[in-house]
Amino acid sequence: MTANAPRSIADYLRQLRAELTGEDPALIQDALYDAEEYLRAEVAAHPDKTEADVLVMIAATYGTPAEVANAYRETEIRVKAALRTPHANHTAVISHSGFFGVFLDARAYTSLFFMLLSLATGIFYFLFAVTGLSISFGCAALVIGVPFFLMFMGLTRVLSLAEGRLIEAMTGERMPRRPAYPGSAQGFWVRIGLMLKDPRTWTTLAYLLLMLPLGLAYFLIASLGLAVSLSLIFAPLFAAAGRWNWVGGDAWSLEPSWIGSLWALPILVALGIVLLALVMHLARGIGRLHAGFAKAFLVSRPRLANA
């Protein structure tokens, strides 16, 4: 252990990342972020010592990469256990009642809500990305081009974090609780260069752009599915309203007329309930797929720390 004790912050972060191999990428991002905050503050607090000297003390104060990795793993398990208790009941219900159990799953409702909401967020993200990019390129030759681009990228990171929080709330997929930090004490231009080289910068932008067509599709699927299944479920109400003229005005009837007949109504209602269950299953599935997609695009993959 002492043979390969870390001698620089980048070294320490590399070892910590190695210790956390196989953990959730979002947890790794959080752990690296916390460690970097502490290590940089510690180095800044000891201006008389070199980075290597400070890192010798780190093992005794902050802990070795292995100890820190263990702390995150254990806390994550405890927090997960504490937060998951209510959901454990839901899964039990689902396994008992099969296909229609989806009506008792909170995730299906929140996923459906996410699909409806994603039209609004999708339009906003798309406009944000297109406006930011075009102004950045348009002003690239001017003095304000670079600061504007930096501000735009900063806001992009905030949006990506917020979208992650939304997705975790809606689908239960673990997303980062901290923004990613490129991690470098180098100069201003080097940092910009690193940001441009970071594939996550571009995948995040791609995600913001892709959210428009995806959001549109999600919204259409969710609203169409809900409209058709709910109108089938409430068909008896329409039939009764038409027959006894509840709505007022001219009497209206359902077309074709067999829809209002007594034998057809129970079938329509049953069909509506089955369709609604299908829509909920679809919403839950899409929620899961989208969470995986968001994770691939918004959360940095474990990569080698910059040298």
Partner: peptide
């Protein structure tokens, strides 16, 4: 305790 363990808590 090690200071690194307070962050996850």
């Amino acid at each position: 305790f090690k200071e690194g363990t307070i962050y996850p808590v």
